[in-house]
Design a protein around this nucleic acid. Structure first.
Lengths: 229, 229
DNA sequence: CGCGATTGTCACGAAGCTGTCACATTAGCG
DNA sequence: CGCTAATGTGACAGCTTCGTGACAATCGCG
């Protein structure tokens, strides 16, 4: 999973700092801006995944920025959480009307912040619907997160599961170790290429004698999933 | 009674907006999607109580989505109201055949929409009584709010009860801790994910040796309720 | 207010998973 | 047939995830 980027907009550096530390501990990438003008530019340039926006700021207020961003189709999808100093219920309504996805009143615990932020991001990025794949009696069901061979459950580790899922949805095509690392491990990990071999072996072992022929070695290149030959 | 959640699916933001405002005034929770793909994912993840579906959309059409949802047992119960631009009677027939519960032609007044929607929901949840579920000798009765195993009463705390109820009505599907927090604890609470683990353990303990195998750990992902294996 | 039940969090240990290495085996080639 | 590069395989240390008991805070109720 790639780290999400959060843009913090607040005119008080100390507050930004506090939030930034909390977010970095929770493995988010953090950007900062101290006014609406800069913030707008950064939203466009850096495309953060979420905006933490202070309500009260000199010049263009936070809510004004929120409204502007929601109006522009290019940025309308960006989830926004508004921060505000006091529990002013009136503002809350205005804030939500402006298109904010959540609303946190200061003071708040870093933990609460992170939790709310997770919730908003979770809702913003709906997980795609994946269909069950069945090939040659081998079945992978993403909904129940299970693998079975001719009805019998197979014990497959997390990485082997992802590897198999990738293969089953990309049959009949040879992949290099490097491509597999990109697709299955995720782009920016650094792992030895030979590691792929080890997981291929673990997967073959898990598949058992009946199905390991599906994972084929393409000498000098990599591996392929295929029912043929 | 908790607010009902309505998922609006339409590719035009202005229409969604109009409907959303009307529904929020009538105290419904509103979710939105602008294409069938996202909508499908949200139905699965967020489990809305009703689907407001536009007939014409780019890509997979609304009616196609309706058909798919009605075919899948997990989502077959979800009431669907189809929206359509003109009073095309042919479509109406097709729509009802696809499993839609009602059918509204644009333009419509917000009041009409809310009224129809209420009617459909009323029909869908008969007197608000949920059925008792019994699986593998384990029985959960929402009326008496009790759990029993092979006739013998089990001592289950409130949270464990809700957790079990959710699981028993959503078998064979792996859920992340995050999803469980959304579904069982409610969307906007902030709780540590590991808390789920603790309640899972309490539930397992309460179920006793005979039934705790029903709650399965999906390593690296979350948990699943299943009778198999 | 006082009491038991419930809840969320933590710390710790167990269990499982991961990446890497060293060495065995194999395929391909002249 | 012998050589070399590529791949298979078993072992293992380090790390992550999960289960579990304890505990303090809070809730519900008399």
């Amino acid at each position: 999973m790639t780290a999400k980027t959060v843009l913090i907009v607040d005119d008080e550096a100390s507050i930004r700092e506090m939030i930034a530390v909390a977010l970095e501990m929770a493995d988010y990438r953090v950007l900062e801006a101290d006014n609406a003008q800069t913030a707008h530019a950064m939203v466009v340039d850096d495309q953060p995944d979420l905006l933490l926006l202070d309500w009260m700021m000199p010049g263009t207020s936070g809510i004004e920025l929120a409204r502007r961003l929601k109006r522009d189709t290019a940025t309308a999808e960006l989830p926004i959480i508004l921060l505000t100093a006091k529990s002013e219920e009136d503002n809350k309504i205005q804030g939500l009307e402006a298109g904010a996805d959540d609303y946190i009143t200061k003071p708040f615990s870093p933990r609460e912040l992170v939790a709310r932020l997770k919730a908003v991001l979770r809702r913003a990025t709906p997980t795609g619907v994946e269909d069950t794949v069945e090939i040659d009696g081998l079945r992978l069901d993403p909904v129940s997160h299970r693998v079975s061979a001719n009805g019998e459950a197979l014990d497959v580790g997390p990485t082997e599961y992802r590897l198999l899922q990738f293969f089953m949805t990309h049959q009949e095509r040879a992949y290099t170790r490097s491509q597999l690392l990109d697709q299955v491990w995720g782009g920016n990990v650094y792992v030895e290429e030979r590691t792929v071999d080890v997981h291929i072996r673990r997967l073959r072992k898990a598949l058992g004698d009946d199905h390991q022929h599906l994972i084929q070695t393409v000498r000098g290149t990599g591996y392929r999933f295929s029912t043929k030959e």
